[in-house]
C-alpha cells in the first residue's frame, strides 16, 4: 500500500478572495480537505459545509453533571453521613448550598467542554500536526486538497485554484 499522501496547496492572501473561491471550487466538484487560516474567518464554516459546532451540548451535559454532583455531595455529607448542628439550622437547606452548586456547575461545565474540544480537535502537547505552509499562522490562508480524494487531474485543480485567486499553488507530499 502506498502510504504517501499527495496534496495540492493553494495559498491565498486575502480572506475575502478565499471566501469567494471556496464555493466555486466546491461547485466544480473538487473536495477541499481543509483550509488553514491565521485567524477565525467568519462565514468560512458555511462555505465549507461545516455544521454549527455542538460544543454547547458538551458544556450543558458537563454543567449538569457538576450541578448534580454538587447537590448530591452537600446533601449527603451534611445531611446523611455526618449531620452537624450549625447555628441550629436545618441539616439540609437550599440557600447555603447555592454558591458551591453554582461554582461546581461552572467549573465542571467549562473543564468538560474544553476537554471535549481538545480531544475532538486532537490538541495535546505531544501532538504532531501536519503543517502545509508555515505562513498559515502568520498572514496567509492555505487550502489543502488531497489529490487521492479527487478524481480531477492535478493540472485541472491547479488551474481552478489559480483562476479563483490563489496567489501560489504548489504540491506537497507527506510520508504518512
Amino acid at each position: 500500500m502506498d502510504l504517501k499522501k499527495n496534496y495540492l496547496v493553494g495559498v491565498f492572501d486575502d480572506d475575502d478572495v478565499l471566501l469567494n473561491a471556496i464555493p466555486k471550487i466546491r461547485e466544480s466538484g473538487i473536495k477541499i480537505e481543509d483550509v488553514y487560516t491565521p485567524f477565525p474567518v467568519h462565514g468560512i464554516e458555511e462555505k465549507l459545509g461545516y455544521k454549527r459546532s455542538k460544543m454547547s451540548v458538551a458544556a450543558f451535559c458537563f454543567g449538569m453533571c457538576g450541578t448534580s454532583f454538587a447537590i448530591w455531595m452537600q446533601t449527603w455529607m451534611l445531611g446523611f453521613d455526618w449531620p452537624m448542628i450549625i447555628g441550629g439550622k436545618n441539616f439540609i437547606s437550599a440557600p447555603p448550598f447555592v454558591p458551591v452548586t453554582f461554582e461546581l456547575t461552572v467549573l465542571i461545565g467549562s473543564l468538560g467542554m474544553v476537554g471535549t474540544f481538545f480531544v475532538m480537535a486532537g490538541l495535546a502537547p505531544w501532538a504532531k500536526p501536519r503543517i502545509f505552509d508555515l505562513r498559515s499562522t502568520d498572514d496567509k490562508h492555505v487550502m489543502a486538497i488531497d489529490l487521492a480524494a479527487n478524481s480531477r487531474s492535478e493540472n485541472e485543480i491547479q488551474g481552478m485554484l489559480q483562476s479563483n485567486g490563489a496567489a501560489e499553488v504548489y504540491r506537497k507530499d507527506f510520508e504518512d
Partner: peptide, 23 residues
C-alpha cells in the same frame, strides 16, 4: 498543542470561547 488553524477547529474554538465567556 499542535494547533494548525484548520477552519474546522476554528469553528469549534469560537463556540468554545463564546460559551466560556457566557459561563
Amino acid at each position: 498543542f499542535g494547533w494548525t488553524g484548520k477552519a474546522r477547529d476554528w469553528n469549534h474554538y469560537e463556540t468554545v470561547a463564546l460559551i466560556l465567556a457566557g459561563l
